Simulated scan of single mutants.
Amino acid sequence: MSTETSPATPAAASGTFAIGGDLSVNRLGFGTMQLTGPGVWGEPADRTGAIAVLRRAVELGVTLIDTADAYGPFVTDGLIREALHPYADDVTIATKVGFTRQGPHAWTPLGRPEYLRQQTELNLRHLGVDRIDLLQLHRIDPKVPLDDQIGELAALQSEGKVRHIGLSEVTVDEVEAARAVAPIASVQNLFNLSNRRASELLDYSGAEGIAFIPWFPLATGELAGEGSALASLAAAHGSTPGQLALAWLLHRSPVMLPIPGTSSVAHLEENVAAAGIRLSDDEFAALTALD
């Protein structure tokens, strides 16, 4: 295993991917969900610290920042705008619509077209942009026809308010059904070293050139326990288990865009350093075998 990094923008060592074929980002991004209050509800305990994390992420070369109207709700949008607006030309803000919030830890899908449009308009206003580069349907609402949900996002796209459309927590069949209505540039599913249930979707995404954004990418579960193979390999190379988990994701597929989140600048810097880790084929195989 080797490490490649740039002192100025280490996230760039993760390589690039063009979302939708024309929106180039550094593959290691940043997820903002942890910048809210407990239960992804309300303001952070340390707003100044949250602003510092966002600014440091961009300083480190992160060009993909993932947020959602439901985070707070709208708390992370406000933090992003305060920290980064006006946005650098190479910074992509990806957001989501399709959830309602009733309190901490409470999430209810709502895919009615008028709601998706309302939340998109609010995202535009809160982020301070005229167009959302990547708008993802946070969840498919089983009570609303999929064609109606994707159709509304496509209408917003045709109006110039959305550049690319993505999906979250979907199956291959659902992606194909959505693609019959509008082009789909990304999918965002739970995927990490210890939970690979979305492998079929990842392989499909790779074959179709669709960005795969794994949420909860740092999870290692029992794989990182004391004396485990993951912990031993990390110790041998002066890395943390979490860094190796991110390196494994980046090695797994060229369409993989991990978005590890944190409210700590130190933890952010540790995560971004993983972009420079290069696993050998043997090391990648050894980590893959930990399933």
Rank of each mutant, 00 (worst) to 15 (best):
residue 4 E to C: 14
residue 6 S to N: 13
residue 8 A to L: 13
residue 9 T to F: 07
residue 10 P to A: 12
residue 11 A to F: 11
residue 17 F to C: 09
residue 21 G to P: 00
residue 22 D to E: 14
residue 25 V to W: 08
residue 34 Q to C: 12
residue 35 L to N: 05
residue 42 G to C: 12
residue 42 G to R: 05
residue 43 E to F: 09
residue 45 A to C: 03
residue 59 E to G: 12
residue 64 L to K: 08
residue 66 D to E: 13
residue 66 D to K: 12
residue 69 D to T: 03
residue 71 Y to A: 10
residue 82 E to W: 01
residue 86 P to D: 06
residue 86 P to S: 10
residue 91 V to R: 10
residue 92 T to G: 09
residue 96 K to W: 02
residue 101 R to M: 11
residue 105 H to M: 14
residue 105 H to G: 14
residue 107 W to E: 10
residue 111 G to R: 00
residue 113 P to L: 13
residue 113 P to M: 06
residue 115 Y to R: 08
residue 125 R to A: 15
residue 126 H to G: 07
residue 132 I to S: 04
residue 133 D to K: 10
residue 133 D to Y: 04
residue 134 L to W: 00
residue 139 R to I: 13
residue 141 D to M: 10
residue 144 V to I: 15
residue 150 I to M: 01
residue 156 L to D: 00
residue 157 Q to G: 04
residue 158 S to N: 04
residue 163 R to Y: 07
residue 164 H to F: 06
residue 170 V to R: 07
residue 173 D to C: 08
residue 184 I to Y: 00
residue 186 S to A: 15
residue 191 F to A: 11
residue 194 S to D: 10
residue 195 N to C: 11
residue 195 N to I: 11
residue 211 A to R: 05
residue 219 A to H: 08
residue 221 G to C: 06
residue 222 E to A: 13
residue 222 E to P: 15
residue 223 L to R: 13
residue 229 A to Q: 13
residue 231 A to E: 06
residue 238 G to D: 04
residue 239 S to F: 08
residue 242 G to R: 10
residue 243 Q to L: 13
residue 244 L to T: 08
residue 249 L to A: 03
residue 249 L to K: 09
residue 251 H to Y: 05
residue 259 I to W: 14
residue 261 G to Q: 12
residue 261 G to M: 12
residue 263 S to R: 14
residue 265 V to H: 02
residue 268 L to C: 04
residue 268 L to Q: 03
residue 269 E to L: 08
residue 274 A to E: 01
residue 288 T to H: 13
